[in-house]
Nucleic acid binder design. Structure first.
Length: 456
DNA sequence: ATCGGCTCGCGCAA
DNA sequence: TGCGCGAAGCCGAT
């Protein structure tokens, strides 16, 4: 029987000589039942060894910076995951523990599990989970990139310098990796495990999420809503996307990034639908460039550069310039609190910050302007970087994501960008100005939309 | 409205 | 070794 999952998508960390008794997919980055290569691979292994499969997800009650906005979106998605898995007779368990590594190990040990499938995530915290599992004795461990279309570890083995260096590698590989997903099978040997429904009330009660950042109302969580948004985007918004996407007064963006971040939607599914919905056009090209090349580049940046969220991770030429301009006078200096409260002299920046704080999302074009101004108005580049990451991780639904770290490093640290005409504070890091925004879109209209709570 | 200069370094052709 | 060119720019000249 041919394997369903391309083995180039799989990192084999450990194998065991012992017969496989029980298989677990530790779901983390890819919180969905459909279109999930890690789940497909785990089921394939279970069938191969004739043993049962279950899905386990660990939650940390006081995960750093996580608040009600994030937990609400995630937990509603997970309720749907459990329902979908139960239709396939696949048990789903949530382990709520302050120390997810030990709690997961204990669960594995006490239940005789000896094959673990992890989903791929380039961020440090997840790399530590992976190493911890690799320390366990007599366990088979596989890691599957279920998030990218072309697997991150396979497409490149080094830090890529820019989009232009990774683009040809990704494009060349797309033909082989952009395939339809095989269906999951209904599990027959689950009765040895039994389906125990999660008490979601208990989970919610056990989580100590910051209640000051409220859940958002305008985007419904979960796989089904994600698929609805996707069809709506392909049918209604793809046409004209390349012209309209950088104008924050238009409702031109896909708004799929929260779903992609929590893994409620697969980028591969998005690409399949976009390719199916329209012939190749500047619109689909522009969208797929963002969806595929830029996302693959962000994962590459974080995976091969563990300093992705500090100044040491910046481009070498930019680091030199930062030292050169460290003592440049700043015309405006704001504290983190000023910025968080959107209390600057710049009404456009305040509006962008307010949009993020209230709606959990900032328009893609303004994210760059927003981050660059934080550099311009902070006493040091280190503080600017920390503040930009703090605010994005706290308020954006798609915070704590490689895209966010790469985007901020692009804005503040020249990562994946080129040098430009030097100027104070920024050195040769690309500058963006209020006047530039004036010439590109109706700034007043955008501010009015945010004030009225009507941005999309 | 459009254009050129600004600037760095990778990747590839030679 | 030389050369082309790059996520979203800026600014001043024409």
């Amino acid at each position: 029987m041919p394997m369903k999952v391309d083995l180039r998508r799989v990192i084999t960390h450990k194998i065991t000589e012992s017969p496989i008794r029980r298989v677990v997919y530790r779901m983390s980055r890819d919180q969905r039942v459909n279109d999930n290569w890690a789940l497909i691979f785990a089921q394939e292994q279970a069938l191969l060894h004739g043993c049962p499969l279950e899905v386990v997800l660990t939650l940390t009650p006081s995960y750093p910076m996580a608040n009600q906005r994030h937990y609400s979106f995630m937990l509603q998605g997970l309720v749907e995951v459990e329902r979908g898995l139960s239709e396939l007779n696949i048990p789903f368990r949530v382990i709520l523990n302050e120390d997810p590594t030990s709690a997961f190990e204990q669960y594995v040990r006490s239940n005789g599990i000896n094959l673990i499938v992890s989903d791929f995530d380039p961020l440090r915290i997840k790399r530590r989970w992976i190493s911890a599992i690799n320390q366990m004795e007599d366990i088979a461990h596989y890691e599957v990139d279920a998030h990218n279309i072309v697997p991150c570890h396979w497409v490149s083995q080094k830090v890529e310098f820019g989009a232009y260096t990774i683009r040809p590698k990704v494009r060349r590989a797309l033909e082989e990796f952009l395939t339809e997903f095989p269906p999951l099978k209904k599990q027959s040997c689950f009765d040895r495990l039994g389906l125990q429904p999660t008490s979601w009330q208990e989970v919610e009660a056990g989580i100590l999420a910051d209640p000051s950042v409220k859940p958002i109302e305008w985007l419904a969580p979960g796989e089904a809503s994600a698929r609805q948004r996707l069809s709506q985007f392909v049918e209604q918004k793809l046409k004209g996307y390349s012209e309209r996407r950088n104008n924050p007064t238009l409702d031109a963006q896909s708004n799929l990034s929260p779903y992609l971040h929590f893994g409620q939607l697969s980028a591969q599914r998005v690409a399949i639908e976009v390719a199916r919905g329209a012939a190749t056009s500047p619109d689909s090209e522009a969208f797929l460039e963002e969806l595929i090349v830029r996302r693959e580049l962000s994962d590459n940046f974080c995976y091969y550069n563990p300093r992705y969220d500090s100044v040491e991770g910046f481009a070498d030429w930019a680091k030199k310039d930062i030292e050169l301009h460290r003592d440049d006078p700043r015309e405006f200096i704001y504290t983190r609190e000023d910025l968080e409260q959107a209390l600057t002299h710049d009404p456009l920046w305040n509006a962008a910050q307010t949009e993020m704080a209230t709606r959990g999302k900032m328009h893609g074009y303004l994210r760059m302007y927003w981050a660059k101004k934080i550099l311009e108005w902070s006493p040091t580049v280190e503080e600017a970087l920390a503040t930009a990451i703090y605010l994005n991780d706290k308020y954006s639904l798609d915070g704590r994501d490689p895209n966010g770290y790469a985007g901020i490093a692009w804005s503040i640290g020249g990562v994946h960008d080129r040098a430009w005409f030097p100027r104070p504070i920024f050195g040769k890091i690309r500058y963006m100005s209020y006047n530039g925004c004036l010439s590109k879109f109706d700034v007043k209209a955008y501010i009015a939309m945010v004030t009225a709570g009507k941005t999309r």
